[in-house]
Design a protein around this nucleic acid. Structure first.
Length: 590
RNA sequence: GCGCUCGUAGCUCAGCUGGAUAGAGCAUCAGACUUCGAAUCUGAGGGUCGGGAGUUCGAAUCUCUCCGAGCGCGCCA
C-alpha cells in the first residue's frame, strides 16, 4: 500500500478504531475485517469518504449496524485528518476530511512527481505477461494491435505497482503454418529469379510482403535452391522467412512502442536433440495426468472424417475442463496444445507463479485446458489469468474500411499507425474494456474535440503546461523548481469547491492505479484520465465567468502560486497515467 | 447440443470486484467567447440495468433459469 494513498491512510485509521473496540471488548477478537473498505461515496454530499465497516462487522459481532457505526464513529472523531463523522443510511460511516488532508495529499503528489501513484502492492512478485505472439507468417494487422497495446500497458501497470514483470512473446515457429510460409516464400524466390509464377495458388500466402524474402533468398543462394528437392530447401527457406517476418513484426511493434523482454521460440522446445514436449508429457504421465484413451465424438457440428481411436490425452477434466484433450495428432506429431503445455512449463520453471496470457477472443474455448495444464504442472500453485481481447471493427467516418489487397487482404497495423499516429491507436485501444468489441474510427480519432478522448486528455496536459508558460511571464520570481514551489505556496488558499473537488480527484489516482493493476484492467486508467481532464477543463472555463478563479491572478502572487501547484498536480497525474498507457503527454497541441 | 464472452439512456460505452437517488460522451433542446487557447464549458430531457426467481442489512455486480448476440467445439495455430 502506498504511503500517498489517502484512502489507504483512512482505512488504517478505521482499523485503529475497530481494533480499539476489540480491545474494549465491544467487538470479538479475531473478527474478520477483510471486507472493511474505504471508498469515495457516489454522492459528494455524503462527504469525502465512506466506510462500510459497521455493516460488514455487525453480523459477526451480533450488533445492529447503526449502533456499531456510532461506536466506530465516536473513535474516529478527533482524528487529526478527520473533520466530521456522520452515520447514515443502513450504517455507513461518512467521513469529511479536514482541508489540510487534501492539501497535504496535493503537496505530496507534486513533490513525488512521476513517482506519484507507484506502490509496492506487488511486493516484487514475478509476473510473466505474454502478449502479441502473432504467427511469424506476415506483418502485424489491426487485429493484433489491440492485444499488443493491452499487454504492453498491463505490463507497465504491474511494474508501476511493484510486480517484477517479464514481457514475453511466444513465436509459433514450429507448426504447419510456417511450412506454408516457406512454400510461399519459395514461390517469391523463383519469381525473384525471373520465373513466371502466375497467380499464387490457393492455400499459400499471397501478400506482397514475401517478395523481399524471395529477393533475399535469391541474393543468398542464387538458383541453387531451385534445383533441390523440397525436403532440402524447406528448412533453409523457412528459417530465412521466419527471421525476416519476425524482424518485420518487431519493427511494427516498435512503431507502436510495444516492447518485449523475451522472445520464446516454439521450435526451441524441440531443438538441439532435446524434446521438451515429450519430456513434459512424460512428466505429466508419471503423475497420472496423461493416459492413452478414447474421446467421444464432438456433439453438434458433425466431424466428417471422425474415426474413433485411442490417443494420448491430458486429463484436463481433473481441473474443471469439459473433456480431456488430445496431445498427439493421428500422424504421431504433437498438437499445438502439447507444445503450449511445454512452453508454460518453462515459464513455471523460470520461477513464475503468476502468469498472464493475452489472447484473441476466438481462443476463449482454450482457456480451461490451459489453466488445467498450469495447475497440473505447478501442483496447483501457479495461477494463469487469460485476458481475452475482443475484435476491433475498423471504420472511417462510420463506414467499414476495406482490406488492402497488396498486404494480403488485411489492414496492416503500420497503415493505421501511419495514418492516425501511435498515441491515438494506443489510447483508443485502451479506452474500452478488453472483452468488449471496439469500434475504431480512423476519422474520429484525429478529430480535435471532446468526442475524441485522446485529444481531450492530451489537451488537458497541454493546457496545464501553458499556464506555467504564462505564469512565468507574470511572476518571473516564482521558483522554477516545482517541489520548492509546493513547499512555499499557501495551499490553504485553494478553497473553492471546484478546486477541492479537483484535489480529491487527484488523490484518487493511486487507488485507481492499484485497482486497475490488481484487476488486470488498464482501461480504468484511461477512463480516470478522461474524468480528470474533464474536471480540469471545467475549472479552467470557470475562470471566464469568475475572473477570481483564474489560475493566474495578476496582483496576487500567493494565490497564483497555490493554483500553480494544483495545476501541477493535474499535469503530473495526466503525464503519469498517459505514460502507463504508453501515450505521449504533449506540452502544446500545435 | 455443450462451453466461453457479452446484453446498462435513441447511439457508443463506464460503473472502482456487493453499497446510498445507476453515470459519461455523441445526438436533441437551451445557454456562455473584449479569454490564462471557446480545440472549452454550463444546464435540460432521456433508464423495468434483456425477462423472471434466489442469496442478505443492500444486487447492474453473486447463484439459478429463460430470451437474444458473438466466438469456439479431436488430427488449425
Amino acid at each position: 500500500m502506498s504511503v500517498e494513498n489517502i484512502f489507504a491512510q483512512i482505512l488504517d485509521r478505521v482499523r485503529r478504531a475497530t481494533d480499539a473496540l476489540i480491545a474494549g471488548g465491544v467487538l470479538p477478537a479475531g473478527i474478520d475485517q477483510s471486507r472493511v473498505a474505504v471508498e469515495p461515496p457516489r454522492d459528494p454530499a455524503h462527504g469525502d469518504m465512506a466506510t462500510n465497516a459497521a455493516m460488514v462487522l455487525a453480523k459477526e459481532a451480533g450488533k445492529k449496524p447503526r449502533d456499531l457505526a456510532e461506536q466506530i464513529a465516536e473513535k474516529l472523531r478527533g482524528d487529526d485528518l478527520v473533520e466530521r463523522v456522520d452515520v447514515a443510511g443502513p450504517g455507513f460511516i461518512n467521513l469529511t476530511l479536514k482541508p489540510a488532508a487534501w492539501i497535504n495529499a496535493l503537496r505530496t503528489t507534486v513533490q513525488l512527481g512521476l513517482k506519484y501513484g507507484q506502490s509496492d502492492i506487488g511486493r516484487g512478485k514475478p509476473v510473466n505477461v505474454e502478449y502479441v505472439s502473432a504467427n511469424p507468417t506476415g506483418p502485424m494487422h489491426i487485429g493484433h494491435c489491440r492485444g499488443a497495446v493491452f499487454g504492453d500497458a498491463l505490463a507497465s501497470l504491474l511494474a508501476f505497482t511493484g510486480f517484477k514483470v517479464t514481457r514475453e512473446y511466444y513465436i509459433n515457429d514450429a507448426g504447419a503454418q510456417v511450412d506454408v510460409l516457406a512454400r510461399s516464400a519459395f514461390l517469391r524466390y523463383r519469381e525473384a529469379l525471373d520465373e513466371d509464377i502466375g497467380s499464387i495458388p490457393e492455400g499459400l500466402y499471397p501478400g506482397d510482403y514475401l517478395k523481399p524474402v524471395g529477393a533475399a533468398l535469391a541474393a543468398e543462394y542464387a538458383d541453387t535452391l531451385r534445383r533441390q528437392p523440397e525436403a532440402q530447401w524447406l528448412p533453409l527457406v523457412r528459417a530465412k522467412a521466419i527471421e525476416m517476418m519476425m524482424a518485420a513484426i518487431r519493427a511494427d511493434l516498435a512503431a507502436l512502442n510495444v516492447t518485449h523482454d523475451v522472445f520464446y521460440s516454439e521450435r526451441s522446445l524441440i531443438a538441439g536433440g532435446v524434446d521438451r514436449v515429450a519430456e513434459t508429457i512424460e512428466w505429466l504421465r508419471a503423475r497420472g495426468y496423461v493416459y492413452e484413451g478414447r474421446l467421444p465424438p464432438p456433439k453438434g457440428a458433425p466431424v466428417e472424417d471422425w474415426e474413433d481411436r485411442e490417443q494420448t490425452l491430458f486429463r484436463s477434466t481433473s481441473f474443471g475442463d469439459d473433456v480431456d484433450r488430445a496431445l498427439k495428432k493421428s500422424d504421431g506429431s504433437y498438437t499445438y496444445f502439447a507444445s503450449d503445455i511445454a512452453y508454460h512449463r518453462s515459464k513455471i520453471e523460470r520461477g513464475f507463479q503468476a502468469l498472464i496470457d493475452v489472447w484473441g477472443a476466438d481462443h476463449g474455448g482454450y482457456i480451461k485446458r490451459m489453466q488445467a495444464a498450469v495447475a497440473a504442472l505447478s501442483d496447483r500453485t501457479a495461477e494463469l489469468d487469460v485476458k481475452l481481447i475482443q475484435l476491433v471493427k475498423l471504420l472511417r467516418a462510420g463506414e467499414p474500411v476495406k482490406m488492402s489487397k497488396r498486404a494480403g487482404d488485411f489492414v496492416t497495423l503500420r497503415e493505421v499507425v501511419d495514418e492516425v499516429g501511435r498515441d491515438a491507436v494506443r489510447f483508443m485501444m485502451l479506452f474500452r474494456k478488453n472483452d468488449a468489441v471496439l469500434d475504431f474510427d480512423l476519422a474520429k480519432v484525429i478529430e480535435q474535440s471532446r468526442d475524441n478522448a485522446v485529444f481531450y486528455v492530451q489537451y488537458g496536459h497541454a493546457r496545464g503546461q501553458s499556464v506555467f508558460r504564462n505564469a512565468r511571464a507574470v511572476f518571473s520570481d516564482l521558483p522554477a523548481d516545482i517541489a520548492e514551489l509546493a513547499e512555499i505556496a499557501p495551499l490553504e488558499l485553494l478553497s473553492d469547491p471546484a478546486e477541492l473537488s479537483l484535489m480529491r480527484r487527484i488523490a484518487l489516482y493511486p487507488r485507481v492505479v492499484e485497482g486497475a493493476s490488481l484487476a488486470h484492467e488498464p482501461h480504468r486508467i484511461a477512463f480516470y484520465l478522461f474524468d480528470l481532464a474533464s474536471e480540469f477543463h471545467a475549472l479552467w472555463t470557470l475562470g471566464n465567468a469568475s475572473p477570481h478563479l483564474r489560475f493566474i491572478i495578476q496582483d496576487d502572487r500567493q494565490t497564483t502560486a497555490a493554483r500553480l501547484v494544483l495545476v501541477q498536480g493535474v499535469v503530473t497525474v495526466i503525464a503519469s497515467g498517459l505514460a502507463l498507457l504508453g501515450v505521449d503527454a504533449p506540452n502544446e497541441m500545435r
